[in-house]
Amino acid sequence: MTPLRQRMLDDMRMRNLAPGTQDHYVRAVARFAKHFNRSPDELGPEHVREYLLHLIRVGASWSLYNVVRGGILFFYRVTLNRKDWAFGEIACAKNRPHLPVVLSREEVNQFLDAAPDLRHRAILSLIYATGLRVSEVAALAVGDIDSQRMVVRVGHGKGDKDRYVMLSPKILELLRTYWRAYQPKDWLFVGEAPGRHLNTRTVQLACRDAAQAAGLTKVVTPHVLRHTFATHLLEGGTNLRTIQVLLGHRSLQTTARYLYVSMEAVTGTVSPFDRLDAAVTSPAPAAEVNRDARALRWPT
């Protein structure tokens, strides 16, 4: 590891940036330097601008653009202390929000049934049962499962905040079956490296494989399971404030987007047309209906 990379990692740790953010920022600077085949401390604002325009030309998403921009600017402003450079002109892209992908209950059943083994089924079922982020479920300790209080303790979640989520009796039964089979000691889901917890990439690949085995056309990721958890809670009558607490959202506005994907919230809303006076909506004479049907057929 180069001294520059180590210094950047130290700077991010001192500011308590999330491990995922640290990884994204370091990768962004590495790819930026590789693009010009030069050390990043030899590059300047015009190189940053040129590289970001390159990302736009090759079709990178706006969310990736913003992550790369954030990583490069952190490197120059903090690690190299070049605060006098005119980086303010390199604007943050407006990221158009998209509705999250959500699975139906039938699709969730298909998906979990297609998990290749008990370990993967326990991991994926736990995400759907609790709405945990992939980094949170991967780093769970055995002691975080509190069967006395029927809660799961989520330590050091996003923003370094701790919280509790519910532990359902069915998921507890599955976790006990998993524990008897694998006998984890410290981490609930042990990684390949000794003494380390599961890698988030392993969970993401397990999601992909289970979705393909289930024959689902939707792209399923751990975050899709989290979206599905929240949407199904909303459709079951749980209020938004409770869902916000369970998900660990800072803003209620973030949680409110699930109103847009809840089918029960949509189909359960009465149209104002249905409240019109009966005389307005009374059927037309049969002859008139037949004439109109011949003139305009409903699209199939």
Rank of each mutant, 00 (worst) to 15 (best):
K83M: 11
Q148A: 09
R163H: 09
V245C: 02
G215M: 06
D277Y: 07
M14D: 02
L240I: 06
R7Y: 00
R49W: 05
H156S: 08
R163I: 11
L64W: 15
F189T: 05
R176F: 05
P285E: 08
H232N: 07
L9K: 02
G191R: 08
H47R: 02
L103Y: 04
A295G: 06
A18Y: 11
K185V: 11
Q6V: 02
A129N: 09
P19Y: 05
K83D: 10
P169T: 02
I243T: 05
V270A: 15
A115E: 09
R82N: 01
Q212A: 12
S63D: 14
R291F: 01
L55T: 09
R82S: 04
I145W: 06
L259V: 14
N239Q: 00
R77W: 07
L17G: 02
W85Q: 09
T200P: 08
G237E: 10
Y164C: 08
H98E: 11
W85D: 13
V220Y: 11
G71A: 10
L167M: 07
F273W: 12
R208E: 14
G88N: 14
Y178P: 09
D84A: 12
K34V: 00
D146E: 08
R297A: 09
V137M: 06
T242N: 01
M166A: 13
P283S: 03
R38D: 09
R180K: 15
M166H: 10
Y178I: 00
R180Q: 15
T228V: 00
A279Q: 15
V224K: 08
T200C: 13
Y128Q: 00
L103F: 00
R153L: 12
D113F: 03
R15G: 01
W62P: 03
N37P: 04
D41Q: 13
P100R: 00
S135G: 15
V261N: 04
P116E: 15
K158Y: 12
R31S: 07
A60W: 13
P184G: 01
D113C: 03
E264D: 14
D144Q: 07
R275K: 11
Q148H: 14
A230T: 02
R105M: 08
L9F: 01
R27T: 02
L80N: 10
A30E: 15
G59I: 11
